[in-house]
Structure formats: structure tokens, C-alpha cells
Design a protein around this nucleic acid. Structure first.
Lengths: 198, 198
DNA sequence: AATTTCAAGTAACGAGTGTTAGTTATATAT
DNA sequence: ATATATAACTAACACTCGTTACTTGAAATT
């Protein structure tokens, strides 16, 4: 079935262009005719490759979610590691997943709310689960007294996620700082703060 | 002209409801018929109070922008204050402005891109200006050696803004932590980090 | 009591939406 | 050479969109 392969290839072209469009204009404001025009075809022709507009969004959101999941599971699997090291690795992993596809990451973050049920519910459950696993790492760090106990844990974890999730909106992959440095510095800033600690 | 006052009053009711709707569904996905239904009137009746859908968005975005502007100007006006104290005050001020209207803040952050030209251009220029003024505070802190010079300044300021700007998405005003504590802790976390510094 | 203002209503417009049905030209496989 | 699969096309559907023109009943002002 070599059809399947080449079909997938063209389908992925459509999905990637859609990601760019969704990132730029937002899912709701992006029309299928816009997307078709970007690809140089007619709107109806898109349906040779995809089932619906929302199928594109689903595929973008859930593929990213799976990659985040995988990255965090790998960090969690390593035993005998301090909480701050675990947190650092989690942050770096998250950044690396995003850096592999900044466009899809932006869609994942900003457009997931346009998923219909039951997909939206599933998505949000996965997301809460992911956040809670980071929260556990922070709580572990508080217990081992690596981290302050003065800071609200929900605040801490949401601040962390806010910082991570907005990265695709401003990060320029052609800039001086590369993704692995970015992850490292971001982790340092969140764990150690801006202030000199001497 | 008592008409102006009562008209403004009803107009503001419309705008506030619109803010809720825009926050929940996004500007593009929110229809004037949705908004009218929430207010218990017909869609066409909205136009007794507002000129267009986008006028609502403009008013939400630029009113918030003015408040942020005012808050930062006040912080900047205080002389003989360390960079970290200035940054802390800037963060607390920003959070307080947001906390006064979480719904409008969410729209300000997420929906401004649906402004048409030339409003979008104006908005983005104001925003860059605001960000750069925070960046100046950070640079000042690096010069006085309060802050590390190892961290990329763009990264630092964008991380800061990401944290601030996502707050309206998760903060529950009925929760244990109140807005002024939130601002204080957020500032502490970003300046000093999660780690204990002893 | 007469007039004006306010906030709503009805009806409809032109344009744009996602999507379907059915067709066709080109490239590939048999 | 023939059959198949791919990727496009045209035409159209039912629907929703923001908005305008005009009207109406109630409240406030004179």
C-alpha cells in the first residue's frame, strides 16, 4: 500500500500548513479557503486528505501531548535524583519537545480550546495530569527542603507552565541562544531566580 | 446630557458581558448573536449601544493597556530604589491591575491579535514599549550586579511576562491566596527562585 | 400633555463558513 | 495497454456571520 505512505506525506503537508495558519490567525478565524489558498488548491480539495477542519486540530494537539507525555515519563523514570535536578530535566525536556515544532506547540497551547467534546475533555485531563506530575516534583522538593515552603505550590507550578508555554510565541530559532541553552537558562531562572546567590 | 451617562452604563454592561464571552470562546468564535442571547436581547439591538464587534475588543484592550501604563509609570517615578525592588513593585503593580479585572485581562492577552489595522499596530507598539521598560529595569539590575549577567535578558523579560500574563487563566479570586500576596510571591519566585537561598 | 430619548424589536442584506457529491487529468502498477 | 490510485477540480448545499434600515413601546423631560 504505497498509497498510504504518499497520502500521509501529502496529508502532513496540509497539517503543517494548517498549523502555521492556525498559529497566525487562530483556529476559529482561519478558514479552509485560507488554508487551501496557501497550498495553491481549492478548499474542497483539502477533503481528499483530511476528514474535517477539527481533525487537523486534533492531530496537532494530541501529537504534541503524546510527545510531552513521553518526555516527562523519561525524566520520572530516573531514580536517585534530587527534586531540583528532576525539575530541571523536566523543564529542559519540555522545551526540547516544543523546539522540535514551535508552530504545533503554539497551536497546542492556544487553540486546544476549540476542540469539541469529548476530545476537549480528554485533552484537559491529560493536561491536568501532566501539570500534577510537575507539581509532585515541586512538592517533593519542598519535603526534602530543597525548595522554600513559603511559596504556594499552585502558583509555582502555574508560573512554571506559563513561562514554558509562551516560549513558542517569542522564541526565534535563528537567534543567538539555542534550544538546549534556552531550556537550561529557563530552568536556572525558575529554580534559582534572577538574583545573584552569593 | 444624562443620556450619555445611562448609555455608557448600558454600554458597559454589554462590554463586560462581551469580555466574558470573548474570554470563554475566543473573539473569533464568539458571535454577536451569542452575546445578545447572554444579555437577553436580539443581536441587532446590540448596535444601539456599540458601533461594531471590534469596537468592543478595542475598548477592552486599550483600557487595560492604559492601566498597565499608569501602574508602571508610577513605579518608574520613584527614585533611589534598587532594581530588584523596582522589579518587584512593577510585578506587584501589574498583578494588581490584572486582578481588578481578570476577564478583561484575559481578553487583553489572548484576543488582541484580532484587532484590525491600524489599531493592532498601535497596540503592539505600546506593548513593546511596556516590555522594554521592564527590560531596562532588569538591565539596570545586571549593571548594579544585583542580578546575574549569565541569563539572556530577552529570555528573562519574556519569562516574566509569560508568568504574569497567564495568571488570569488559572487564578481563582475566591482561593486562599489574595491578589497582593499573589503579586508578592510571584515577584519573589521570579527574583529569588524556588530554591532556598541559605 | 407633548416631546424627546432609550432600548429594544423585526426583517433582511451580502458575504463567508465547513462540507458534500460527482468529475477529471495525471502518474503508477499490472 | 489497461487498470488503479492520487490529487486535484467545479458546483453547490445549508448555515452562520456582522451589520443596516426601519419600527415600537416605555420612560424621562419639558
Amino acid at each position: 500500500m504505497s498509497e498510504a505512505i504518499s497520502n500521509l506525506s501529502r496529508k502532513e503537508q496540509v497539517i503543517r500548513k494548517a498549523a502555521e495558519l492556525f498559529k497566525e490567525k487562530g483556529y476559529a478565524a482561519a478558514s479552509m479557503r485560507d488554508l487551501a489558498h496557501l497550498l495553491g488548491i481549492e478548499a474542497a480539495s483539502l477533503y481528499s486528505h483530511i476528514k474535517s477542519k477539527e481533525e487537523i486540530l486534533r492531530s496537532l494537539c494530541f501529537d504534541m501531548a503524546a510527545e510531552f507525555q513521553k518526555s516527562l515519563a523519561e525524566v520520572e523514570s530516573k531514580k536517585d535524583i534530587s527534586a531540583s535536578e528532576k525539575l530541571r530535566n523536566g523543564i529542559i525536556g519540555h522545551i526540547q519537545v516544543m523546539a522540535k515544532d514551535l508552530t504545533a506547540s503554539a497551536v497546542f497551547m492556544n487553540e486546544h480550546r476549540h476542540l469539541s467534546q469529548p476530545y476537549l475533555r480528554d485533552f484537559l485531563l491529560m493536561r491536568i495530569n501532566y501539570i500534577n506530575r510537575f507539581k509532585s516534583i515541586i512538592e517533593q522538593g519542598v519535603q526534602t527542603k530543597e525548595f522554600k515552603d513559603s511559596i504556594d505550590k499552585k502558583l509555582a507550578v502555574m508560573t512554571l507552565f506559563s513561562s514554558l508555554n509562551w516560549m513558542p510565541m517569542w522564541y526565534d530559532p535563528g537567534s543567538a541562544i539555542d534550544p538546549s541553552q534556552l531550556g537550561f537558562q529557563l530552568a536556572d531562572m525558575l529554580v534559582n531566580g534572577l538574583k545573584k546567590n552569593d
